[in-house]
Nucleic acid binder design. Sequence first.
DNA 1: GTTAGCACTCGATAAAGAAGAGTGCTAACA
DNA 2: TGTTAGCACTCTTCTTTATCGAGTGCTAAC
Lengths: 343, 343
Amino acid sequence: MELDERKRKILQAVIRNYLETGEPVGSRTISKYTDLNLSSATIRNEMADLEEMGYIIQPHTSAGRIPSDKGYRFYVDTMMEEKEKEVVGMKEMLLERQDKMEVLLQQVVKLLAQNTNYATMISAPKTHGNKVKFIQLSHVDEHQILAVIVVEGNVIRNHILNVEEKLSDETLLKLNILLNTHLNGLSLSEINLGMIAAMKQQAGIHSDIVGGVIDAVAGAIQEEEDLQIYTSGASNFFRYPELADQQNASNLIGTFEEKKLLSGLLQEAGNDGAGTGIQVYIGDENMVSSMKDCSVVTATYELEEGMRGTIGIVGPKRMDYDKVIGTLKMLQNQLDELYKGKR
Amino acid sequence: MELDERKRKILQAVIRNYLETGEPVGSRTISKYTDLNLSSATIRNEMADLEEMGYIIQPHTSAGRIPSDKGYRFYVDTMMEEKEKEVVGMKEMLLERQDKMEVLLQQVVKLLAQNTNYATMISAPKTHGNKVKFIQLSHVDEHQILAVIVVEGNVIRNHILNVEEKLSDETLLKLNILLNTHLNGLSLSEINLGMIAAMKQQAGIHSDIVGGVIDAVAGAIQEEEDLQIYTSGASNFFRYPELADQQNASNLIGTFEEKKLLSGLLQEAGNDGAGTGIQVYIGDENMVSSMKDCSVVTATYELEEGMRGTIGIVGPKRMDYDKVIGTLKMLQNQLDELYKGKR
DNA sequence: GTTAGCACTCGATAAAGAAGAGTGCTAACA
DNA sequence: TGTTAGCACTCTTCTTTATCGAGTGCTAAC
């Protein structure tokens, strides 16, 4: 059977209507509120066809139709009209340019959740493959040394090392020079054991400090990978009856606390993302089982120097895809500009 | 009317039973499972008295009794037997001593939530009143300077300053010395405008950098106050039917995302806390209206050098106070030891 | 002071009925 | 051949009614 123009129009009407109301859509509704000028009976015939083709579903015999996953997919792929939607409050927030990445991200997800009324999550931009820019050791007190490690993209890590006895300022200066001459400009994969051994030898009795710093460097570059996920708006799940029942809500909220899972999801999305970097996962297209009744829309964003992260919106399958995608695109632009302006 | 020994025993039995089951407790149950050897009729009389005195409540005529807030309060104040309860997994976690406070706190709340089956929150230890230990400016690249500020308690803040043209190493050294001689050992309240003016004057054309650093210092000491709250186990609310209905759950989860509110709650608790630093808020004894059906147990913890934070557990009013308080005490000890050991 | 007995209350659960939305199918129509 | 009116039928949802049972309060006897 073919999906002719009329069927498409009807499918679109069913989906649009369902996105708004969340109630199954009957033939009468379609016949009334479309410019097709067809009677409900005709619509019924067409709807029966659409059901046979798998685009819509009848929850039970005497109910209207709701879109199937296939229906949503078709809608998202071919019928969507993006509505640009501004994120209210975004500009003011970005103007006061948070230096702390952490705070910035938290505010972004929060605003996004407030604006969309869906649950949101964001992964911190990965410093993946980045290089050591500069290392600085300083005294903190008698028995402690502070190591500051700056990685490309101005990601900064601090690490405190304990030492037996206070080092002289000269020693510290020497170590500083030693570390910087050897490590600057290198990425993690370029730091090998031979190099480490050479440095330790040159450091003599202070080789343990060199070791400590190198551990810290490795940590600085890798550490984050795991848990740097911020979320907001989990209570929005309750806005949508199909997700608000105890079973579902409990699972979803639980999942939303399990950063590991979210991290996997966002990472996968980041890899999938082609073109605009926007991905839509409908129903069980995403791998998290507790989200099988949800749709997830993700967008990758990029800050300076190739630091990329992913932002995600989780809502019911009948989420307002048009608006969400428009909003995400707009957000991508804003973030882009912010960091361009900063440079 | 007087609360004699027998009434106390009955009250205790009612509360204990209700904590376990969450169901109203009838007179027969008490008569059966107590060593009082009284008939249900006698118990009934006593329970009528207890109700009159306000310790227990009848949800409706033909139901058993449940404790009132006053009843819980009495129980917590006078009848509790603390059960020491180990936090499973705590020791192993603390052994690998996280240097990043952030990660440590996140793990603590998570473990605590898993162990207790309640929702948990923790505020990062406040550096309140702490003093500047040491400031270090370094070049990052042509147009950026990194300011590292270490505050007592080894809280470290980084701040990147943009500069018009590259400063010479000497200039930087001078600024370093200037900042350190003036600011070291001072707390925020001790840094006044006169001092700042003097420093700016000495810095000459680089006064703007001094200004930037001072802003950063102020930020380093204060910043946190607001949002450094970590939470876990929000989905545990669903375990308790009295909190799991849509209305309640939605509010609670929403509240749990509103760090500002939690922050206020924990702060207040930190101030109230006398003696052991453990506080119990039953029902609307806490100020957050969405938690009026909950109890909140808080404990202050202290890391080295007077850095204090507060940890909180939120559950139904029928939470297992004995266990929760025992657990919190145990946690206090563990954290104490951890940081004593570190020194 | 304690207890057995009994009528009474009231929520919870189930069963039955009514209402209504929407369908599929048939037959008539353009 | 496509479209439409009409109608019986199906299911869900809501309301009503009935039943059950836990637990009480009170009285009278021990």
